[in-house]
Simulated assay, not measured.
Amino acid sequence: MIAFNTAAAGALNATRMFDRAATKVAQSAGNDTTDLIGAVVDQSQARTAFSANLAVMKTAEQMTGRLLDMKI
């Protein structure tokens, strides 16, 4: 369960990162393109991190299920 909990925390952090980047995008609309590009890159990184953590959560759940099946 440690892997699942770690991945869940990582997914939450990625969600927060995406939210911060989305706020920057909204605030920099029409102003500084450097901030806008950086915020879009941050959104992309957050999406990738979230997907990776979700994959870890799914794998941890499958492994736990298989382990329980083996014990029964």
Rank of each mutant, 00 (worst) to 15 (best):
T34P: 01
D69E: 15
I72E: 11
N53V: 00
N31R: 14
A29Q: 13
D69A: 15
V25F: 05
A39P: 01
V56M: 12
T33C: 03
T6S: 13
A9D: 08
N5W: 07
L68W: 09
D32F: 03
V41W: 00
Q62N: 13
E61K: 13
V25M: 09
D35G: 07
A26P: 02
M70P: 02
T64M: 15
Q45H: 07
A52K: 04
K24C: 09
N31H: 09
V56E: 08
T6W: 07
A39C: 05
A60H: 03
N53T: 02
M17A: 15
V56Q: 06
N53Q: 05
A60P: 04
A9G: 10
F18I: 01
F4S: 08
F18W: 09
F18P: 00
D69R: 14
Q43F: 00
N31A: 09
A52I: 02
T33G: 00
T33A: 11
A46M: 01
N13S: 15
R66Q: 14
A9M: 08
G30D: 08
A60L: 08
T6I: 15
K71M: 10
V41S: 04
N13C: 04
D42M: 04
F4R: 11
Q45L: 05
A46L: 01
T23G: 08
A49D: 09
I2G: 14
A11M: 15
R47K: 15
R66K: 13
Q27K: 13
T64Q: 14
D42G: 03
T48S: 14
M1F: 15
A14W: 00
G65D: 14
S51P: 01
G65I: 12
L54T: 12
T23N: 13
A8I: 06
